[in-house]
Nucleic acid binder design. Structure first.
Lengths: 135, 135
DNA sequence: AACAGTCACTTTCGATTCGAAAGTTGCTAT
DNA sequence: ATAGCAACTTTCGAATCGAAAGTGACTGTT
């Protein structure tokens, strides 16, 4: 099976799995898109951009394109006339769930962020105010 | 116990633990510093900057400052005259190990990166050429 | 037929950040 | 005096970011 275009063309700067991953996911937005696709039932451009963090639309557009190129996301037409698109995680993309979970755990403990339970589909521990975060 | 300065002053853009974490670790370099401090015995500025990925020294300097501000890294003087510094992970910093491990797993499977075993202190699966990465 | 609305983007542009290289500081060693 | 090293800092052009406005294809309403 062939690589997605974006991936095939790319020369990684190092052998390290972590470095390689950071070349794809190492920015403020990309993992938030993955989070919304994975857990929050957001699948259209509209839904993704009206998400909590209000990412700029040009960034969303670019990131989605990259995620598709890397084979983490699939872009499907779910309606013709007018044509509308739905973004869905591929198997590769879904494989990021343990990464998201670990990051969430850390962000919860260290930064007082909320804790979401994917199985229950709801937040099980609300975020604390940054000012009250203790070490 | 008080928050580290950088953290106390900061207003997160969202409640989400993942979004908060990405505000700190969401760039190409920061996690690589954490990786080197955690697993590869690199603790001085010199050691960190001659690491595989050759990060620019101004970035290294900035990132280290932020990591110290966030309380993930401790900067210690290990030698006076001339004064020399050693960077060490705090407990918060060490708590990132499961995150690193999951990212490594994903980067190995999805991008053909190498697999390092922290307990054994060595690479247990070498990186594959990007061109040969299969899905 | 004209006009408002929706979705999915793209364009623009000033501000910020990045990265490569060179420069600085404080000290030791010859 | 000169060279060398560690740990940065400065410089500066290039790349990227973010906020806002604009575009195009269509539908639904008057």
């Amino acid at each position: 099976m062939a690589l997605p275009e974006g991936a095939a063309a790319h020369e990684f700067r190092s052998q390290c799995s972590i470095a390689r991953t950071m070349e794809i996911l190492g920015d403020r937005w990309t993992l938030l898109i993955v989070r919304d696709l994975m857990w929050h039932g957001k699948h259209t451009f509209q839904e993704l951009q009206t998400s909590a963090e209000r990412m700029p639309t040009n960034q969303l557009s670019q990131r989605l394109k990259l995620l598709v190129d890397w084979g983490l996301v699939d872009k499907q037409v779910y309606q013709e006339r007018p044509v509308r698109y739905r973004y869905v995680l591929t198997e590769q993309g879904r494989a990021l769930e343990p990464v998201l979970l670990q990051i969430m755990q850390w962000g919860h403990k260290a930064l007082g962020g909320g804790l979401y339970d994917p199985k229950a589909g709801r937040t099980v521990a609300p975020a604390r105010n940054p000012a009250s975060v203790e070490r």
